[in-house]
């Protein structure tokens, strides 16, 4: 590492590299700083009293929490299976699960509508049972689960890969059943990674816009999440949209900070043990 940095400081490329890097940092960070800077405390206080905003924030919090719980509960055993079962099937499944990352959210929204809409592949059958998903809060959660699950699976799989098979073999020879070995050995080792995955999935669910707009529609208090509220606030009141956006930046910042703290906190906890 040190040899590399001394090499680059000698090189005539360093100036160009530094300028380019600074430009990129500025491009990424400047708009967020400007956004926060253009919001006053009075604006924030006013927004906090706005029922439209309170509804959107409440809906966002409720739906994203439901999504994260679903993704984590269903995704953790799946990630363990993907990692612990070598073979063509698990490779194919794991590749399929990565697909939503590569696909635009609007496409996912349309696909969900074609599947779970009232005329859809599954939705038509469900509607004969009196179950409607599209344009309900359930649709918001379904859209969030679809787009955020891949992030969780990836992070959780990476974490489970750190569990060496030998550890489990030892646990089994000591009399643990395979599920006990998973719960008592594999999961605690991988826990920080799983938590990171859940946080990533939460962040992605919180930012979900395209799929939600297409599949869940836009109804304040019912399916209008924070990103949709920002989009629609912009049409009438730019200041309000800026305030809502600032709040999401704040929420994202808190999330990132806790993500950074989780590994070190976990390490500290292990040291204490």
């Amino acid at each position: 590492m040190s040899s590399l940095s001394s090499l680059s400081s000698l090189s005539p490329l360093s100036l160009v590299g530094r300028l380019g890097g600074a430009a990129l940092v500025l491009t990424v960070v400047l708009p967020l700083i400007v956004l926060i800077g253009s919001t006053s405390v009075a604006d924030l206080r006013e927004a906090a009293r706005n029922p439209r905003f309170v509804e959107a924030l409440g809906l966002s919090v409720r739906t994203t929490l439901a999504s994260v719980v679903l993704v984590t509960v269903l995704g953790t055993p799946l990630a363990w299976w993907l990692v612990s079962t070598p073979g063509r099937l698990s490779r194919v499944v794991s590749m399929l699960l990565e697909l939503p990352i590569m696909i635009p959210p609007a496409v996912i929204g349309l696909a969900l509508l074609q599947t779970f809409g009232r005329m859809g592949f599954v939705g038509a059958w469900l509607s004969t049972k009196g179950i409607f998903i599209a344009f309900t809060p359930a649709a918001v959660v379904l859209a969030q689960v679809t787009v955020s699950a891949p992030y969780f699976i990836q992070a959780a799989s990476n974490a489970f890969r750190e569990v060496t098979p030998d550890t489990l073999v030892v646990a089994r020879t000591l009399g643990a059943s395979s599920s006990t070995a998973f719960l008592r050995v594999a999961l605690p080792i991988a826990l920080p990674g799983v938590v990171v995955g859940a946080s990533l999935a939460w962040a992605r669910a919180l930012g979900e816009f395209g799929a939600t707009l297409l599949f869940a529609g836009n109804l304040p208090g019912h399916t209008q999440t924070m990103p949709l509220a920002i989009f629609y606030a912009l049409e009438s009141d730019v200041r309000m949209a800026v305030v809502l956006a600032t709040m999401l930046v704040g929420l994202g910042g808190v999330l990132l900070l806790s993500l950074r703290l989780i590994p070190s906190l976990a390490a500290a906890a292990r040291r204490r043990r």
Binding site: F135, L219, Y232
Partner: peptide, 20 residues
């Protein structure tokens, strides 16, 4: 009974066309 508010009239029409 309003289930969604759309940002342009073609999106409104599409919801009926889709059967939603």
């Amino acid at each position: 009974h309003v289930v969604s508010q759309e940002s342009n009239v073609r999106l409104i029409r599409a919801k009926v066309e889709l059967g939603e």
